[in-house]
Protein backbone atom coordinates (compact mmCIF):
# COMPACT_ATOMS: atom_id res chain seq x y z
CA UNK A 1 0.00 0.00 0.00
CA UNK A 2 1.58 3.22 -1.13
CA UNK A 3 1.80 6.25 1.05
CA UNK A 4 -0.42 9.09 0.15
CA UNK A 5 -1.02 11.99 2.54
CA UNK A 6 -4.71 12.38 1.73
CA UNK A 7 -5.60 8.71 1.81
CA UNK A 8 -3.57 8.22 4.98
CA UNK A 9 -5.50 10.92 6.79
CA UNK A 10 -8.75 9.52 5.48
CA UNK A 11 -8.10 5.92 6.46
CA UNK A 12 -6.86 7.04 9.84
CA UNK A 13 -10.09 8.89 10.56
CA UNK A 14 -12.46 6.34 9.02
CA UNK A 15 -10.77 2.94 9.24
CA UNK A 16 -14.02 1.04 8.73
CA UNK A 17 -15.60 3.27 6.08
CA UNK A 18 -12.85 3.00 3.48
CA UNK A 19 -13.14 -0.42 1.85
CA UNK A 20 -10.29 -0.03 -0.69
CA UNK A 21 -7.68 2.52 -1.55
CA UNK A 22 -5.54 2.84 -4.64
CA UNK A 23 -3.06 5.26 -6.11
CA UNK A 24 -2.03 5.20 -9.76
CA UNK A 25 0.18 7.89 -11.29
CA UNK A 26 -1.26 11.12 -9.91
CA UNK A 27 -4.74 9.81 -9.16
CA UNK A 28 -5.92 8.56 -5.79
CA UNK A 29 -9.08 6.51 -5.33
CA UNK A 30 -10.94 5.41 -2.23
CA UNK A 31 -13.92 3.08 -2.16
CA UNK A 32 -16.26 4.19 0.59
CA UNK A 33 -19.23 2.41 2.17
CA UNK A 34 -22.44 4.13 1.29
CA UNK A 35 -23.67 4.44 4.87
CA UNK A 36 -20.68 6.61 5.75
CA UNK A 37 -20.57 8.60 2.54
CA UNK A 38 -21.95 11.89 3.83
CA UNK A 39 -19.75 11.76 6.94
CA UNK A 40 -16.66 11.15 4.82
CA UNK A 41 -17.57 13.97 2.45
CA UNK A 42 -18.13 16.42 5.28
CA UNK A 43 -14.77 15.49 6.72
CA UNK A 44 -13.04 15.89 3.37
CA UNK A 45 -14.59 19.31 2.92
CA UNK A 46 -14.11 20.72 6.40
CA UNK A 47 -10.80 19.31 7.56
CA UNK A 48 -8.28 22.16 7.21
CA UNK A 49 -5.51 19.86 6.01
CA UNK A 50 -7.64 18.55 3.14
CA UNK A 51 -10.36 21.17 2.34
CA UNK A 52 -11.90 19.53 -0.72
CA UNK A 53 -14.20 22.44 -1.32
CA UNK A 54 -15.25 21.73 -4.92
CA UNK A 55 -17.24 18.90 -6.32
CA UNK A 56 -15.95 18.36 -9.80
CA UNK A 57 -18.17 15.61 -11.00
CA UNK A 58 -20.33 12.67 -10.04
CA UNK A 59 -20.84 9.89 -12.51
CA UNK A 60 -22.21 6.39 -12.56
CA UNK A 61 -20.85 3.19 -14.07
CA UNK A 62 -22.87 0.06 -14.71
CA UNK A 63 -20.93 -3.16 -14.27
CA UNK A 64 -23.62 -5.48 -15.56
CA UNK A 65 -22.85 -9.03 -14.55
CA UNK A 66 -20.93 -8.11 -11.41
CA UNK A 67 -22.34 -7.56 -7.98
CA UNK A 68 -22.52 -4.84 -6.71
CA UNK A 69 -23.72 -3.65 -10.09
CA UNK A 70 -23.54 0.12 -9.99
CA UNK A 71 -20.67 2.33 -8.99
CA UNK A 72 -21.14 6.02 -8.25
CA UNK A 73 -17.87 7.87 -8.72
CA UNK A 74 -17.22 11.26 -7.09
CA UNK A 75 -14.38 13.47 -8.28
CA UNK A 76 -13.39 16.10 -5.72
CA UNK A 77 -10.94 18.95 -5.96
CA UNK A 78 -9.27 20.95 -3.27
CA UNK A 79 -8.49 24.36 -4.71
CA UNK A 80 -6.35 25.61 -1.78
CA UNK A 81 -4.04 22.60 -1.93
CA UNK A 82 -4.53 21.69 -5.63
CA UNK A 83 -5.27 18.06 -4.82
CA UNK A 84 -7.81 15.67 -6.28
CA UNK A 85 -9.43 12.52 -4.99
CA UNK A 86 -11.85 10.03 -6.44
CA UNK A 87 -14.42 8.42 -4.17
CA UNK A 88 -16.42 5.43 -5.21
CA UNK A 89 -19.56 3.95 -3.75
CA UNK A 90 -20.76 0.56 -4.87
CA UNK A 91 -24.47 -0.26 -4.85
CA UNK A 92 -26.26 -3.49 -5.61
CA UNK A 93 -28.48 -3.78 -8.63
CA UNK A 94 -31.61 -4.63 -6.66
CA UNK A 95 -31.20 -1.80 -4.15
CA UNK A 96 -29.71 1.16 -5.98
CA UNK A 97 -29.87 3.86 -3.32
CA UNK A 98 -27.13 6.22 -2.25
CA UNK A 99 -27.31 9.10 0.24
CA UNK A 100 -27.17 12.45 -1.48
CA UNK A 101 -24.27 14.82 -0.92
CA UNK A 102 -26.19 17.96 -1.85
CA UNK A 103 -25.98 18.98 1.78
CA UNK A 104 -22.19 19.03 1.49
CA UNK A 105 -21.75 20.58 -1.97
CA UNK A 106 -24.68 22.33 -3.62
CA UNK A 107 -23.20 21.54 -7.02
CA UNK A 108 -24.01 17.86 -6.59
CA UNK A 109 -27.66 18.47 -7.40
CA UNK A 110 -27.66 18.11 -11.15
CA UNK A 111 -25.04 15.34 -11.52
CA UNK A 112 -27.05 13.23 -9.08
CA UNK A 113 -30.22 13.88 -11.04
CA UNK A 114 -28.38 12.80 -14.16
CA UNK A 115 -27.31 9.51 -12.57
CA UNK A 116 -30.90 8.94 -11.47
CA UNK A 117 -32.07 9.63 -15.01
CA UNK A 118 -29.46 7.54 -16.76
CA UNK A 119 -29.00 4.64 -14.33
CA UNK A 120 -31.96 4.61 -11.99
CA UNK A 121 -29.89 5.04 -8.84
CA UNK A 122 -31.94 6.97 -6.29
CA UNK A 123 -30.32 9.55 -4.04
CA UNK A 124 -31.84 9.81 -0.59
CA UNK A 125 -32.18 13.33 0.67
CA UNK A 126 -31.96 14.95 -2.73
CA UNK A 127 -34.12 18.10 -2.83
CA UNK A 128 -35.50 17.55 -6.32
CA UNK A 129 -34.93 14.06 -7.69
CA UNK A 130 -36.45 13.85 -11.16
CA UNK A 131 -35.29 13.31 -14.71
CA UNK A 132 -33.05 15.93 -16.15
CA UNK A 133 -31.95 14.98 -19.65
CA UNK A 134 -34.71 12.72 -20.89
CA UNK A 135 -38.37 13.81 -21.15
CA UNK A 136 -40.29 13.44 -17.90
CA UNK A 137 -42.39 10.55 -19.11
CA UNK A 138 -39.51 8.49 -20.51
CA UNK A 139 -39.41 4.87 -19.44
CA UNK A 140 -36.13 3.14 -18.82
CA UNK A 141 -32.68 4.30 -17.90
CA UNK A 142 -30.60 4.78 -21.05
CA UNK A 143 -27.05 4.35 -19.81
CA UNK A 144 -27.66 0.93 -18.29
CA UNK A 145 -25.84 -1.77 -20.16
CA UNK A 146 -29.04 -3.69 -20.85
CA UNK A 147 -30.72 -0.70 -22.48
CA UNK A 148 -30.28 -0.94 -26.26
CA UNK A 149 -28.64 1.92 -28.16
CA UNK A 150 -31.63 2.38 -30.40
CA UNK A 151 -34.03 2.63 -27.51
CA UNK A 152 -37.08 0.65 -26.55
CA UNK A 153 -40.30 0.84 -28.49
CA UNK A 154 -42.64 2.65 -28.54
CA UNK A 155 -40.51 5.53 -27.20
CA UNK A 156 -37.91 5.01 -29.91
CA UNK A 157 -40.54 5.27 -32.59
CA UNK A 158 -42.28 8.31 -31.16
CA UNK A 159 -41.21 10.57 -34.01
Amino acid sequence: MEEDPVLDILTQKFPDAVAERKTWKDERTAVVLREKLVEVCLFLRDDPRLSFNTIIDICGVDYLGEEPRYEVVYHLLSIPSARRIRLKVRVAGDDPRVPSVTSVWAGAEWPEREIYDMFGVAFEGHPDLRRILMPDDWQGHPLRKDYPLGGIEPWSERY
Binding site: M134, P148, G150, G151, W155, Y159
Partner: peptide, 13 residues
Amino acid sequence: FNNYTIVQGVDRV
Protein backbone atom coordinates in the same frame (compact mmCIF):
# COMPACT_ATOMS: atom_id res chain seq x y z
CA PHE B 1 -26.05 9.94 -34.14
CA ASN B 2 -28.39 7.01 -34.49
CA ASN B 3 -29.67 6.27 -31.04
CA TYR B 4 -32.52 6.41 -28.59
CA THR B 5 -32.67 10.15 -28.39
CA ILE B 6 -32.08 11.77 -31.77
CA VAL B 7 -34.88 12.10 -34.30
CA GLN B 8 -33.58 10.52 -37.48
CA GLY B 9 -34.32 13.40 -39.75
CA VAL B 10 -36.41 16.42 -38.99
CA ASP B 11 -38.75 15.56 -41.83
CA ARG B 12 -40.36 13.10 -39.46
CA VAL B 13 -41.73 16.13 -37.64
